[in-house]
Design a protein around this nucleic acid. Structure first.
Lengths: 143, 143
DNA sequence: ATAGCTGCAAATGCTTTGCAAGGCC
DNA sequence: GGCCTTGCAAAGCATTTGCAGCTAT
């Protein structure tokens, strides 16, 4: 294990390497570092800017272009999910399965709606189309 | 009726003037023209760019800045609804009540989901917050 | 060896803003 | 008259891209 992986367990790194391999992605230093940040703890919700800020604390931080690149790649290969919210920024979620989100506008926080609260959305796609995804964002404000 | 209102009925213009007045907005030439474009036919879904292109066919087209300005104003006063979709552009809808949307990615088209297809979303807001709005976008792709 | 990655900086695309001139009450 | 609006052009911000040099297989 080299210096770049000092703060992750061997186990975590191995799983991540498998994850990348399964997706057909080369295990570059930058992807491993970003992957470690993203997947070492539970579900995370973040923007490119937030991830880049976090990555800048690493010894050899990946560039902003690489952060965007990696996020797109991870999303395209099912390791992450993109979420459209009001405002300019794109959000990402490490939980990829179907679920909905709360967005707290005053704090700019995005978080999952617990499964228990989710009714089944049973919507039929129009002729000639199929449903790619269902995006539900419940916007909240403080009382 | 002056030259700026040639292609709208007197009736339509009067209603629009009332609408603006009710919202506390001055009935400027640009707002009346934009309002006519938006409300003369049924429900419409559009982006700022689309509206600006359409407005450019008028004799004295409002500037792009005014188009954005007016859209924000109308949205803030409940005459329009903003919709967040993937991609950089903000969409607007002349139907302001609660309803959901289909977004056809390959054609970049946004349209309403018929009310009949909509199940009730009965989601409780977390402590200390209230629900501002529920945004549902079902993304479609061609088969 | 070679196809794929990365970093930098410049470019892009949508949206916002500063400010001077014009319009509505 | 005085405040609100508009138009223009410049700025802003998140994101993308071109390209030369590096890296994984």
């Amino acid at each position: 294990m080299d210096a770049n992986q000092m703060n992750s367990t061997n186990d975590t790194v191995c799983k991540l390497r498998e994850k990348l391999a399964a997706a057909g992605l080369r295990p570059t230093r930058q992807r491993l570092e970003i992957g470690n940040l993203l997947f070492e703890s539970g579900d995370r919700h973040f923007t490119a800017e937030m991830l880049h800020a976090e990555a800048n604390r690493l010894r050899y931080p990946p560039s902003l272009a690489t952060v965007y690149n990696t996020l797109h790649l991870f999303a395209a290969h099912g390791l992450l999910r993109e979420i459209a919210v009001y405002g300019a920024k794109t959000w990402y979620d490490t939980k990829t399965g179907p679920h909905f989100h709360f967005y707290r506008e005053d704090r700019e926080e995005l978080f999952d709606i617990p499964d228990a609260l989710i009714p089944i959305l049973n919507i039929a796609a129009p002729e000639g189309t199929m449903i790619e995804a269902i995006d539900v964002v419940v916007r909240l404000r403080s009382i």
